[in-house]
Design a protein around this nucleic acid. Structure first.
Lengths: 323, 323
DNA sequence: CTGTTAGCGCCTTCAA
DNA sequence: TTGAAGGCGCTAACAG
């Protein structure tokens, strides 16, 4: 900014950054602000970052499948919280051609939130560049997962719900899309563990891309005595319900089904689908606070919820063998 | 990078940037590369951007609702294409607290792709900063929309499909979520236009958040003589189908329904839902080419499809009044 | 309270 | 074919 304001660069820097230590006369302050406004001046992000060694970008590294539902909402909230703290959130979806190493050659973010797994090389590179690494639902070698949400707990909750109704043989149904394995496997494993703890018979099957074959899979499940199904999400649950109905089975009398996500499809299904919903507002704030250390993040009120995940009982579950 | 390689900064810069004009002996080249590798040296993005005045970031500015389905796929493809051209794509979702002006204070991208509307102030700011602006499904004052896809065409195609089957009274059903108005209104308007062209009776209704009330809405539609419904998307279509069935109407005999998105829910519905699918691979390449001008973008083969949008006929549509 | 000054790491013209 | 030097726009010591 030209010293069109008639002051020195230092002064400009001071007032624009609200430097705590420095005392600037209100007159000068106004003069600088005025000049900045008329000139349309804004400091160059690159020069600033170069000088301070750090930008005010927070990068969310997302897995390479679409983020929808509760997680999408969380991202949105996180972005807003960070913006309030003067940080800008960007998302980058993992893809085959560029890894974090590449991405960090385009910018040096203040922090990277890993919502997908990082390789040791990526982690090392980020560290070397002084980038603050936060593992949130993604694995970074040597870092703790900061997410207050375990995918395995989702599976555990589903099984517990069925067990509570008296089911003794339960199954986990995985989605066709193996890209989702990163997500679905932990849920299944949690379900499996919980079933073992409770002494339930447990098996799992994976859908295929052929919709028709779901019928066969569900038939196999019911004939083997399974009375309760945990589905990866509401979409899978819906497809299981449909298949059962095609087979002349009644839901929930012959088969109970529990989904995940509390999505529209589950509400519209007949019967409506019992599901697991997420309470992620507090998580978003937590994460924002973690990322905005040293900045004055506006105080947030929302208390930590009793449970991050919660069962939403609907019509698709009942004790086995009766309506 | 220390001249641990025993060469000058110039040399390093040359080899690392593959400078065309300069001839570097293969020996030196290797020595530099070697040293860079062992030192783990990478040029600072900020310094580079400061010097050249431009970074290699492409920023996609997204509307503040979740991007799913075909558009999500497009983003993913775009990101991969840009990565191949040495550009890094970041996404930033619009939110209430930071606008583009704020975001551009964190970085100076090579280009911004507007997938949501920009204010004149935002556009001016970006221009002043020398950021290349591309309107793609978003409106930027003074810029042409580069998207080969008009939302209004989606609505038009839906109406055409119903008209082709002989329907004479059609309705458009909008989603509850008014955030989606930006998307849904153009579709509805296209449908309305097309209906007028074809001399069809046209009306539109909006769902409410109360699922039960959908029944009443659909009842109103059918009693007023509507035989064909265009739904905002497959989810809305599904909910219309369900409501019709609750009313004892049969789909498609009493009511034909056309959705949009070719989503799983439409395929699993009974009857399966006729829908509009998108062919966006070519769009992604086009857009990438537009953004990567001056860079050597790997050649792409996919030909421009005959139609960006395509009707997928399924079981939920038939001529009016018969099965 | 305000101005001077020295780089941050890189690219690039100019000379050698 | 390579080295030296200047400056991109900014921040932060350090005077004044």
């Amino acid at each position: 900014m030209a010293e069109a304001a008639g002051v020195s660069r230092t002064t400009v820097s001071f007032v624009l950054n609200d430097r705590p230590g420095a005392a600037i006369s209100e007159t000068t302050r106004q003069r600088v602000l005025q000049a900045a406004a008329t000139l349309g001046y804004v400091p160059s992000p690159e020069a600033r970052a170069l000088k301070t060694g750090r930008s005010d970008i927070v990068l969310c590294l997302l897995p390479d499948w679409p983020i929808t539902g509760p997680l999408g909402v969380l991202l949105k909230k996180l972005s807003a919280h960070l913006a309030e703290a003067g940080l800008t959130m960007f998302s980058h979806q993992r893809n085959a051609v560029d890894d974090l190493t590449q991405v960090l050659q385009s910018t040096t973010p203040a922090a990277v939130v890993a919502m997908c797994d990082l390789t040791p090389a990526e982690a090392a590179f980020a560290q070397q560049r002084g980038v603050h690494l936060v593992a949130w639902m993604g694995v970074i070698p040597g870092y703790p997962d900061e997410a207050g949400l375990r995918q395995s707990d989702v599976g555990r909750l589903q099984v517990s719900a069925l067990a509570g109704l008296g089911h003794e043989r339960v199954a986990y149904v995985l989605p066709h899309d193996t890209d989702l394995a990163w997500f679905s496997d932990p849920r299944r494993d949690g379900a499996s563990e919980r079933a073992a703890e409770l002494g339930l018979a447990f098996e799992h099957v994976r859908l295929t891309d052929d919709v028709g074959s779901t019928t066969g899979l569900v038939d196999g499940l019911t004939t083997s005595g399974t009375t309760g199904v945990c589905a990866y999400n509401d979409e899978v649950a819906f497809s299981v319900v449909k298949a059962a109905q095609r087979l002349g089975r009644e839901v929930p009398r012959d088969l109970s089904v529990v989904g995940v996500d509390d999505s529209v499809i589950g509400r519209l299904s007949e019967p409506s689908i019992t599901t697991v919903s997420f309470e992620l507002a507090h998580e978003a704030e937590n994460l924002a606070a973690l990322l905005a250390v040293g900045r004055n993040l506006p105080a947030r009120s929302s208390a930590r919820p009793a449970e991050v995940i919660r069962l939403v009982p609907r019509a698709s579950t009942a004790p086995p063998g009766r309506a």
